[in-house]
Each structure stands twice: as structure tokens, then as C-alpha cells.
């Protein structure tokens, strides 16, 4: 854990531990596979020629979806575990300090920075407050939603005796009305996650170029480096 204080800044801080970094990239890959295969389940490719016994395209697409989904789920569970045992940065996206005035002041400042209304961004070792808000609402809860609805849909095929049906399908499907509604919301949330990805990638690259700390390389090496020697704005 970083011990830097507001009185001085360090040239580099170890922010993202290895499990967080591995999770980030496998999760990114899983989400890409899930989005593509999921889209193709909703809108399948053109008809395959030949006998049914010679083809298994839809089967493979669905397999890719389910396999990636399990990686996504187990990765997320592992990530939650790491939020308990890892450094303070590993908890950040799960617990936005919504009762802290300083935090909301930071959100406001980021909003101004993104509206080109202030000249300089603040300097953060962890995520900036705006990022925490977006990651918490769109990504964390979006992920939870996809895992629950996804397992509910999987349970339909796995059958009444499966644990997926017992713990997910049984109550989630009536909650939404019927299976078709669960499909629709699962599909809509995919687009929410795609919107998140667009913004996430754009903002990460932009911040890397324009802000006062490293972004993209940090998620690879784990080390946050800074472009100036002034004070850090978050307490980490």
C-alpha cells in the first residue's frame, strides 16, 4: 500500500497488483467474446449449407458464449475476493465513498475537466472520482445483472434439476415476467456494457495523454507514474 501523503509526491506508486491486472485483461477478453457470441445468438449468421449433421455452428457460438461467461463469472468472484485481501485500490470500484463531500467535489471537478471548463485535471493515484462512479454503476452492477440474468437463461437449458435453475431461473424469470423479457433485458445490458467499454477505452487513452498520471501502462505494469512533481489529490 502506498504511504504517500499530501506533503510530497512519489515518482511511481504500485497501484494494481498482479491479480487485478490479470483479471482486467482476461475479463476484457471474456466480455468481447460474450458480446460477439451473444449478438450472434440473437441475430444468427446466414444459414449453413449441407446436412445438419455436418454443421454445429450455432452450437459452437453458444459454447463460446457459455465458456466465456463462466470465465467472466469466476473472474468476477475472484475479483471480489481480491477486494477483501488486496490493497486499498482493489476496493475502490466496489465502494464509492458516496458520503464524502470531498469525493463529490472531485466528481464535479472531473466534470468540469471533461467539459473543458478547467485547465488542469487533478492528480490521482487510484481512479478519479468520476471514474469510480461510472465503474461502480455501469460496470460492477452491470456485471452483477449480466451474471444473474445469464445464469437464469442458462438454467432454462440446463433444466429443473440444475443449480442454475434452482438458484437463478426459478425466481428471476417470474420476476421479469417470462423468459423472453429476461432475454431482452440481458440483451439491453450488453449494450450498456458496450457503451461503458467505448467510454472506458477512450477515457483511458485520453487521460494517458492529457492528464498528470499514467493510465494504460499502469494496467500492464501495475505502477502509476506521474508527469509532474506536485501533490497528489487523493489520500492514497
Amino acid at each position: 500500500m502506498s504511504t504517500s501523503t499530501k506533503s510530497h509526491s512519489e515518482p511511481a506508486v504500485y497501484v494494481y497488483e498482479a491479480p487485478v491486472r490479470i483479471w482486467h485483461w482476461t475479463n476484457a477478453l471474456a466480455i468481447i467474446v460474450l458480446c460477439i457470441s451473444g449478438y450472434l445468438i440473437g441475430s444468427p449468421l446466414p444459414t449453413m449449407p449441407g446436412e445438419a449433421s455436418d454443421n454445429f455452428l450455432m452450437g459452437y457460438i453458444r459454447f463460446a458464449h457459455f465458456a466465456a461467461a463462466y470465465i467472466f463469472i469466476i473472474g468476477f468472484l475472484g475479483r471480489i475476493y481480491w477486494a477483501f485481501v488486496g490493497n486499498s485500490h482493489s476496493r475502490q470500484i466496489f465502494l464509492p465513498p458516496i458520503f464524502s463531500g470531498e469525493f463529490w467535489d472531485g466528481v464535479l471537478h472531473e466534470a468540469l475537466w471533461y467539459s473543458f471548463l478547467t485547465k488542469e485535471p487533478r492528480k490521482y493515484t487510484g481512479h478519479n472520482p468520476m471514474a469510480v462512479i461510472f465503474m461502480h454503476i455501469m460496470f460492477v452492477w452491470g456485471t452483477v445483472f449480466m451474471i444473474f440474468t445469464g445464469l437464469a437463461l442458462y438454467g432454462e437449458g440446463a433444466g429443473y434439476d440444475s443449480w442454475q435453475y434452482t438458484y437463478f431461473s426459478g425466481w428471476i424469470i417470474p420476476l421479469f415476467g417470462q423468459s423472453q423479457d429476461v432475454h431482452t433485458f440481458h440483451h439491453l445490458m450488453m449494450w450498456v456494457l458496450i457503451l461503458f467499454m467505448i467510454m472506458h477505452v477512450y477515457v483511458a487513452i485520453r487521460e494517458d495523454i492529457m492528464s498528470r498520471q499514467s493510465l494504460v501502462s499502469t494496467m500492464i505494469s501495475g505502477w502509476r507514474t506521474f508527469k509532474d512533481k506536485r501533490n497528489i489529490d487523493d489520500g492514497h
Partner: peptide, 22 residues
């Protein structure tokens, strides 16, 4: 194949909504 979503005023499905938002 995809359900119409009436809440958006005109009939659209999840992909149309998603592509518009994206």
C-alpha cells in the same frame, strides 16, 4: 426474433436501441 420495446415511444428492439446509443 427480438422483442419490441414499447417504452421508447416507437417500436424498437434491443439492438436498435443499443446501436443508437452506441
Amino acid at each position: 426474433r427480438l422483442t419490441s420495446i414499447h417504452q421508447f415511444g416507437v417500436e424498437e428492439n434491443a439492438d436498435e436501441v443499443g446501436i443508437a446509443a452506441a
